[in-house]
Every structure is written in structure tokens, then in C-alpha cells.
């Protein structure tokens, strides 16, 4: 856990920490899991990280991070001035450089506005290296709140037609907000189903979405176990999904990391390499 606060963060337009928003359009594709794991992986790399749960009224990032019982103040409390920013930042049990600002459970998305989020994140930038915002599903107020402060947007999708369709819509909205180009994480990939032709292959998804891929996460039952126990899978050295999320975090910091092999399908990786090379 060596402190690796490189100068790569200093290029942010607003100065200080970088805001990365995790979104998807469709629900249930793994936004919250990805937020918790990318946050934990960055913190394990030595960065100071704060995750924000943007899903006001349906909070669960605190559960996935195992911090539910420590909540005193939440995001709406900070925005409405009932507490200071630092009072709402819950420190993680395992990683001292990881914090969470939970969502309010008893309010709804209209409790905050996009400009509230921009102000809050601007204040946070001075405190941390990375701010990871977990967006709610949908394209309404909650999504716009989550996207407003973003320096970078990461779209999570599954290799399913409906999830990819929603991702495409979201990419268009992100471009319209001039927050693009978004980056893509393809979650819950089942290599043997792809091989049998029963699941969309990563090439199919990339051909349609045409944005930079920064993660291929294999389907892994242990992700559910880790979510339920509130312990991010990236802390499990043996898990392949954990390895994939660690690689996503590294790529977000600007490191070049080769994609891990999905099963033994090396043909796919070489094809992917060609696609990435061509797309730049």
C-alpha cells in the first residue's frame, strides 16, 4: 500500500481530485458493485478515495461496502447544511484511505440538484484524489445529478441486448452533456456462453457502442457473496472478477494493463487487440 499520489491528477480542469461517475441506464448491471470495487482498488493502490452514493431513496452502496451501521449523516445532510462534509465521510473498515458519503434513504432524487453535486464535489476535490459517484438507474434527475460533477464517465453494461441498448442511449446523453467520451466496462461476461454463441461477444458490444473499453469482468458467483458480506471482491486476491476490477482501477489512473484472458479464448483477445489498436 505504497502512497502513489502521482502528478497524473493535477491535469483536472477544476484542480485537485478527479470525479468519476459510474452509470449504466439500466438497473442491475453492477453499477454499485463496480463503484465499491473501483473505489476499494484505487484506495488499495494508495490513493485517497471517496465514494458517493447518488441513489437517494434507494441507497445500497453502504451495504455493499459493509458500512451501513456507521451512517450518521448523509449526502442530503451535507447539501442542506446539517453537517460538515467531513462528518458525512465514513471511513472504510479495511482501507484507511477509502471513504463513503451515503445517500439519504428517507428522501428522493429531487432533494438535491446538479449544481449541489458540483459544489459538493468541488469541495471534496481538495480532500481526496478520486471521487467515485454511483449513479442511480434511469435518465432522470438522479442521473443528471450524478453526471453533473463528472470529469470522466464510466458506463457499466452486461452482454445483454437490453443493457447494451440502454448503454448506447446513456453514451448519447453523456456526449450531449459534453462529458464524453465515456469509457466502458463490460460486466458479468460468461466466456463459455460467448463461445457457444449464446451471449453477445465483447466485439459485438464494442462494435455498437464504439467507445473505449477499460474493463472485461467475468461472471463470478463470489461477487454476490462479497456484496452480501460487505467486503469488496477486489480484496480477494484469488478472484478473477476482483482482478478485473483492479485492472479497471489501474486503467483509470492511466496505467496500461493487458486484458486478462477470458477462459482460453486467446483468439478473442488478439481480435480485441486489433479493434483497440484500430479505434485508438
Amino acid at each position: 500500500m505504497s502512497a502513489r499520489r502521482t502528478s497524473s491528477n493535477s491535469s483536472n480542469p477544476a484542480g485537485g481530485g478527479k470525479v468519476i461517475t459510474i452509470t449504466s441506464g439500466k438497473g442491475g448491471v453492477g453499477k454499485t458493485t463496480a463503484t465499491a470495487n473501483i473505489g476499494a482498488a484505487l484506495a488499495a493502490e494508495g490513493y485517497k478515495v471517496c465514494c458517493i452514493d447518488g441513489d437517494i431513496g434507494l441507497r445500497n452502496l453502504d451495504v455493499v461496502m459493509g458500512l451501513e451501521n456507521r451512517i450518521v449523516y448523509d449526502l442530503v445532510d451535507v447539501i442542506e447544511g446539517r453537517c460538515k462534509l467531513r462528518q458525512a465521510m465514513i471511513r472504510d473498515k479495511r482501507l484507511p484511505e477509502l471513504y463513503l458519503i451515503p445517500a439519504a434513504q428517507t428522501r428522493d432524487k429531487s432533494a438535491i440538484s446538479p449544481s449541489d453535486m458540483v459544489r459538493l464535489c468541488d469541495e471534496l476535490r481538495a480532500e481526496v484524489d478520486y471521487i467515485i459517484v454511483d449513479s442511480p438507474a434511469g435518465i432522470e434527475r438522479g442521473f443528471r445529478n450524478a453526471i453533473a460533477p463528472a470529469d470522466e464517465v464510466v458506463i457499466i453494461t452486461n452482454p445483454e441486448v437490453s443493457a447494451v441498448r440502454d448503454a448506447d442511449r446513456i453514451i448519447g446523453l453523456v456526449e450531449a452533456e459534453q462529458k464524453g467520451p465515456a469509457k466502458l466496462v463490460l460486466n458479468r461476461l460468461n466466456a463459455s456462453m460467448v463461445k457457444r454463441g449464446d451471449m453477445l461477444a465483447p466485439e459485438d458490444v464494442l462494435e455498437l457502442l464504439a467507445i473505449q473499453l477499460i474493463g472485461l469482468v467475468p461472471e463470478d458467483e463470489n461477487v454476490i457473496v462479497s456484496s452480501n458480506s460487505g467486503s469488496p471482491i477486489v480484496l480477494d486476491e484469488k478472484s478473477r472478477a476482483g482482478q478485473a476490477f483492479r485492472n479497471v482501477a489501474k486503467r483509470l489512473t492511466g496505467q496500461e494493463v493487458p486484458f486478462i484472458s477470458m477462459d482460453a479464448d486467446d483468439g478473442f483477445l488478439s481480435r480485441l487487440g486489433k479493434m483497440m489498436g484500430r479505434g485508438g
Binding site: 441498448r165 440502454d166 448506447d168 442511449r169 453514451i171 448519447g172 446523453l173 456526449e175 464504439a210
Partner: peptide
């Protein structure tokens, strides 16, 4: 006759 030229990809929802 008049034509509209769009030099971009039209994504879902547009």
C-alpha cells in the same frame, strides 16, 4: 432537393 447531412453516429434515443 434539400438534404440533411449528419456526420455522426445516431445512438439509441435520438
Amino acid at each position: 432537393s434539400e438534404a440533411l447531412l449528419l456526420r455522426r453516429t445516431l445512438r439509441s434515443g435520438s
